[in-house]
Write a protein that binds this DNA or RNA. Structure first.
Lengths: 338, 338
DNA sequence: CTGAAAGCGCTTACAG
DNA sequence: CTGAAAGCGCTTACAG
């Protein structure tokens, strides 16, 4: 075993103090350190294979260079797409990301947050579960910076980066109307989460603007608390009634589940029913009829979230107006709504 | 802001020493601490909302309760399925998981490993990129425990948990043969990675055992170094030649890409070509013909990896014979090979 | 049964 | 230009 090298070892080998080694390696006070000494230290550190112990460093500097990423549900394609982007972007600033999923559960969300707080993450990027405003307020009390993505709380002044969900849904449904579909159904969660409410609103408004009557029977409402089997059953039930000629699925997982049921029941897209859903997943090209979908600007969401968070980390005690960004999404028309 | 409470604050409030608080909260020497004092300390700690600073704790105990998870490619469904399982299992032992992707790249793998080492992870679970044996040897030198999953190095004594890839491929191809398909093609990566070689071997052996001649033209070889577009093009090229009546895709991503090309070129499964692939992904139910596939025991792989790793962490200096587990996979027959 | 003190490996004012 | 020393918030022999 090659024992782990400490700063002390480097200092001894170079015949200087630990302080100097620390200065050189962190490029502090470069102006007033002897060039040759600096060079010697750098070389010796390299020869010995010295890497600073981040734990010790963190204890002293009170910075861990770690971001806690709280996801709603890790199996959701949105989650790992965004996780990947956030990790890459964070790496550019020498931050690591530690991610966890709260599975849309209030309690799990709280536990996860506590775990990350104890691990001294410098800040959070959060896809918030429903009714977790008080957890976020707790973070504010602790002066731990965070930024929300995907979901937001309209009543609060938290920073967020989201898309215009109302507009996205409105566009999608208007497209189906233009295409001549008569009975357009919505599959969505019934929840207090504003972004999903917005999607429902976009749907109902587009229907209303087309001069049609709103029909409760056209909405398939799921609960986020249901287990996968219950969700599946409810969707299957709804599909079987065949009270629609087009379906707008308000989330990617709901969309995929709907398509699976279509397959099961031999309902052909778009002949028997047109289909539009959220997010660009593998399903888009994999389904026999390429899927019309709403494409979120994932890269922008991830990058902005990281940049804003790091800015806040570096200016913790300088209050600023809330940073609330609403990005545009893209509507991609394919065969499934042909 | 409610200032963060330290152990000192609790000690002061309780009128005892920090040492005692530490003992009580960590349940050390419970036998020789006054019950009432202990109770008082516990209550006060709770009232003040005390949580130990994990960084300080780690510095002293040299344990971070963190596992570094190195993935081959985070967008691969295998990766996040297994990541999820590992996170959940690790949580049972109060370990957190910090994950990263090396994108099948040697250099990125090295950087990632160094980052995790500096962050003092207690151990690694690794889906190894090709030719990274020396990186693993480095970990051994540092006495940092690790266990490989999914992939292994037959020449080395590293711990691993994998499936019998040869057998899985052999079974899949034999099934196609029994079904009467005449020209069975393989889509796989050309690589030094043993688990993928095993899959090719299982394929060629099954073909040979059926008394057929091996035909080089039946193998579509990809390179892991190719970018997605190149991979796509090569598969498209291969598909277009139509020199097959069945395809066995040796990885899930290759399988999904193949199916996308089938759609593009209006090749119907299983009428124009039968199809079998690795892994249970959303694609299985989403494709119009339910996919025949090899189902890996993900839960077992993840759980065993975590359990073995934690065992090693707790017994670092007690050498044991290598722990090399080969699990069985399940072959699930569906319509795509009907 | 309990406390004073050292130490984990760094960083950083301060003194010279 | 450089070093001695304090301190981050814990844990843990050791002494009593």
């Amino acid at each position: 075993m090659s024992k782990k090298i400490r700063i002390k070892d480097v200092a001894a080998a170079a015949g200087v103090s630990s302080a100097l080694v620390s200065y050189v390696l962190n490029a502090r006070h470069v102006d007033r350190i002897n060039k040759d000494t600096a060079k010697k230290i750098t070389e010796i550190a390299k020869d010995l294979g010295y890497y600073p112990n981040q734990i010790a460093k963190s204890l002293k500097t009170r910075k861990t260079y770690t971001i806690g990423l709280m996801l709603g549900d890790i199996v959701n394609p949105f989650s790992h797409q965004i996780a990947r982007i956030i990790e890459d972007e964070a790496k550019c600033y020498d931050y690591a990301v530690i991610a966890g999923s709260c599975d849309e559960d209030h309690e799990r969300s709280k536990k996860l947050m506590e775990t990350f707080v104890n691990r001294q993450v410098d800040g959070f990027i959060i896809v918030a579960a429903s009714d977790t405003e008080n957890q976020l307020a707790y973070l504010e009390e602790l002066d731990i910076p965070f930024v929300l993505i995907d979901r937001y709380f309209p009543e609060k002044n938290f920073d967020y980066i989201v898309i215009d969900n109302y507009q996205a849904a409105y566009t999608a449904v208007s497209h189906l109307i233009e295409k001549g579909y008569q009975k357009i159904a919505l599959v969505n969660y019934e929840t207090s989460l504003a972004h999903l409410k917005d999607r429902t609103l976009g749907y109902t408004q587009a229907i209303a603007d087309s001069g049609r009557m709103h029909d409760e029977a056209s909405i398939c409402s799921l609960s986020m608390q249901d287990n996968p089997q219950e969700t599946k059953n409810k969707i299957a039930q709804f599909i079987k009634n065949k009270n629609y000629d087009a379906i707008f699925a308000a989330t990617n997982t709901l969309g995929i589940e709907t398509l699976k049921q279509f397959n099961q029941l031999h309902i052909r897209v778009p002949d028997d029913a047109a289909f539009v859903c959220f997010d660009e997943t593998d399903a888009v090209d994999l389904f026999y009829a390429k899927l019309t979908h709403i494409r979120q600007p994932m890269q922008a969401i991830g990058n902005l979230a990281v940049q804003r968070l790091i800015h806040k980390i570096n200016h913790v005690y300088e209050p600023e107006p809330p940073y609330q960004v609403v990005l545009k999404s893209e509507f991609v028309i394919n065969e499934s709504s042909g």
